[in-house]
Each structure stands twice: as C-alpha cells, then as structure tokens.
Simulated assay, not measured.
Amino acid sequence: MAKLYFNYSTMNAGKSTTLLQSSFNYQERGMRPFLFTAALDNRYGVGKIASRIGLQAEASLFSADTDLLKVIEEEIKVQPVDCVMIDEAQFLTRDQVFQLSEITDKLKIPVLAYGLRTDFQGNLFEGSQYLLAWADELRELKTICHCGKKATMVIRVNEDGQPVREGAQKEIGGNDRYVALCRFHFKEAVYS
C-alpha cells in the first residue's frame, strides 16, 4: 500500500543523503524513483540534489506553481514511476501537498518528502505544516546541538556569525547561514 511519508529535521541531519540513499535502493532493485527539488535552491547546480558528503542526483524542479500530480500523471504515460521523492519539501504549497496525497491515494505511488520542519524564527513552513497534518507517516531525522542535546531548531546567522531575527522565511544557505540548535540554545540566541 502506497503511503505519503514526511522525513523532517533541522539543518545538517542528512535529509538529502537519506533521500539519495533511498533513491539508490530503488534503482538497485530495477525500480524507477522520480526526484523533485525546489527551483529556488541552486547551491549545487540547477536541478541537482546534493548532500554534504558528496552524493548527488539529477532532479526535476518544482516551484509554487508546479502541479506535481500532473507532472507524475504525464510521466507514467511514458514509463513507470515506482516512487516520488521530494527534497526541500518545506517549500511546497498546501495545494502541492494535496497533490502528493493524490499521487499516493489515486496513483498508488509512494511519496517520500524530505524537509525542514521550522524556519529560523521557529515557525512552520507551509509545506511542512501540511505534511505534518496529512502524511501517513512522520519520521524525524536527528542531529545534535553544540551542547550534545538533540537539535530541533535552526537559526540564521549573518556574515559575523550573529543570529538574524528578521527577514524572509525562504532564504537558501548552508552551514555559513544556518546553525542547528536545541530549543534551549535557540531561545537563548533568538530571544535574549
């Protein structure tokens, strides 16, 4: 039975690495995964999912106006799709999460979405909000704060390493811009 999975975490927990490993597992068994990544994330090149440990794969781009269900319906007319995988799933819209549920429910294709739960201010992203509400299974990928506790939050930092408290919710960056922290250290950085 196909399910919609949401694999979430803070920065640096291995979301992209896990997605790429899952994709490899499908391919190794002669199956075909279909990969999506956010159009606004071009840190590793356009249409690429890459991990910090060097793994990468080509992916189709999605933006806020992409109809994911329609893309997959057209794709399966050409060749089978055994699984749909989405990197940077926090950037999905409510409608796109609904489309993913349709891929699962009507097309009977499993969907594995990977993304951040919250932004640098501790607020849910739209995609994450609806994936948390509608996914069949939730999986938290864990990483740690500098203190050794589980990191559940992320802060954005400026070029001097100081916390940024205001700004656009969607801003792409890596270790130079974001730091994963436990809730205690998040509150200390953002609210003190």
Rank of each mutant, 00 (worst) to 15 (best):
K150P: 01
E140G: 02
L138R: 07
G127M: 06
C182W: 03
I144G: 01
E137S: 10
K142V: 07
E159H: 09
E159C: 00
E159P: 00
K142R: 06
R177K: 14
A135E: 10
T143W: 12
I155F: 12
C145Y: 04
K149Y: 12
Q169N: 02
W134P: 00
N175K: 15
R177V: 13
A168V: 12
K170P: 06
S128D: 09
Y178L: 07
V154N: 07
C147R: 13
E159V: 09
C147G: 12
I144W: 07
G173F: 08
A168C: 13
K142E: 12
L141E: 05
G148T: 06
A133H: 06
E137M: 04
E171R: 15
I144Q: 15
K170H: 08
H146D: 14
D176G: 03
K149H: 13
Q169T: 11
A168M: 15
Q129R: 13
Q129H: 15
V157P: 00
T143Y: 13
I172D: 15
R183V: 04
K150V: 02
G148H: 12
G167V: 05
C145G: 00
V157I: 15
A135S: 13
E137K: 10
C147P: 07
Y178P: 03
C182N: 03
N175F: 08
Q162Y: 13
E159K: 12
K150A: 03
P163F: 12
M153C: 02
S128H: 14
I144A: 11
L141M: 15
Q129I: 06
E140Q: 08
G161Q: 09
V179Y: 01
I172S: 12
T152I: 05
C147K: 15
R183N: 01
R177D: 01
L132H: 07
R183C: 01
I172K: 09
E166K: 14
C145A: 06
G161M: 12
Q169L: 13
A180Y: 02
K149D: 10
D176R: 05
Y178M: 04
G161R: 07
D136P: 03
E137R: 13
G127P: 02
V164H: 13
G161S: 09
L138W: 04
G167E: 09
E166S: 11
V154T: 12
Y130M: 07
C145S: 09
V154E: 04
L141T: 00
Q169Y: 03
G167Y: 14
I155A: 09
A180R: 02
C145K: 01
R183G: 02
L132S: 10
E126I: 02
L181R: 08
L181V: 10
I172N: 06
Y130L: 08
C182P: 01
A133G: 12
E126M: 05
E137V: 08
R177N: 04
G161W: 11
V154A: 09
A151P: 01
C182T: 00
V179P: 00
V154S: 11
K150C: 00
Q129C: 06
G174Y: 13
R165N: 04
F184P: 00
Q162R: 09
R183W: 10
S128G: 07
E140M: 14
P163V: 11
K149L: 06
E159N: 05
S128Q: 03
